[in-house]
């Protein structure tokens, strides 16, 4: 829905949009359609153009596919630069992402056809395998980007509207202060339990804990459960301070749960890049080795 506004007084033009349009549907799927067309055309060429069966890579189609593929890989890598170099100009990172996604998917076809389906335990096949690994992680990335934001957004809402990460942390701190004050009158055994919850860093936990949202050593849950177990056999008294602590611990558990779901989703949004990006560099290294070796040692 983008239209180009006319040049204005400052001489700077600006693309105006009136609605949100995601990178997958960008420009009416232009890059998706282009990539599909390229893939179909290349498959047709591969099938219908007679070429030598051996050493496909050294045929004209092989060279062409190889050159396009190598240049495409380098161009796709440039997204990282584009994202960070905020230069003036009518570029849009969304358009780049869209092209990156669809042309990247198309690369599976280009790279695989370039191989002529000759695989072996060598650096050439290594480059191909790394390429698939990068694309595979990328596909996972697309899936995460397409689904996690919704969940992230839904998780932020409560009765009073959406709250931010900062507010979640603030809520935990505020509850901690209240628990601390309320627990002053508890007996030493219970107080020690409550103290465990206060002392535990809510962010503690391994990467694994974080991406699975599974915290078996959560002191707050432990404290709440233990406190209830202890109190189960004690006679009830009016105005028991443990009631208040219990309620506060339950609230803290809920806030922690929300914050941990938030962190899990955020981790998923970032985690895949820790494969995607380093393997890209490995791919470029393997690709260089592949290119040097085919020209010097063929």
């Amino acid at each position: 829905m983008a239209t180009i506004a006319p040049k204005k007084r400052t001489g700077a033009s600006r693309a105006r949009t009136s609605t949100h349009e995601g990178f997958l549907r960008h420009n009416n799927l232009f890059w998706g359609k282009l990539s599909a067309a390229i893939a179909v055309a290349l498959l047709a060429l591969y099938i219908f153009v007679p070429l030598p069966g051996q050493h496909f890579g050294s045929s004209w189609l092989g060279y062409t596919l190889g050159t396009i593929g190598a240049l495409l890989i380098l161009w796709l890598t440039m997204l990282g630069m584009r994202k960070r170099a905020i230069t003036p100009g009518r570029w849009s990172l969304k358009a780049w992402t869209s092209a990156h996604v669809y042309l990247g998917l198309c690369l599976t076809v280009i790279g695989t056809l370039h191989s002529g389906f000759h695989f072996g335990w060598n650096v050439h096949t290594l480059a191909w395998a790394l390429m698939l690994l990068v694309i595979g992680s990328g596909i996972f990335g697309i899936w995460v980007y397409a689904t996690a934001p919704r969940a992230l957004s839904a998780n932020r809402y409560d009765d009073e509207g959406a709250i931010t990460e900062k507010q979640m942390i603030e809520a935990v701190r505020s509850l901690d202060r209240q628990i601390h004050d309320a627990a002053q009158t508890l007996d030493p055994q219970s107080a020690a339990l409550v103290n465990l919850s206060l002392e535990q860093d809510p962010f503690a936990g391994s990467f694994w804990n974080r991406i699975t949202d599974n915290y078996p050593k959560c002191a707050t849950r432990h404290a709440a459960a233990e406190l209830r177990r202890i109190r189960a056999y004690q006679p009830r008294m009016g105005d028991d301070p443990a009631d208040k602590v219990d309620a506060l611990l339950t609230r803290k558990e809920a806030v922690l749960g929300r914050m941990r779901r938030h962190l899990k989703l955020k981790s998923w949004l970032q985690a895949w890049l820790y494969i995607h990006v380093p393997v890209t560099f490995a791919l470029i290294a393997a690709l260089s080795a592949h290119i040097v070796s085919v020209f010097f040692y063929w």
Partner: peptide
Amino acid sequence: AGIEGGPSCVRACPTGAAIRV
């Protein structure tokens, strides 16, 4: 203002989530 292409925040959004309207 005066930067060709318009608001950087919008241009730099990788997913198209940010728009200025």
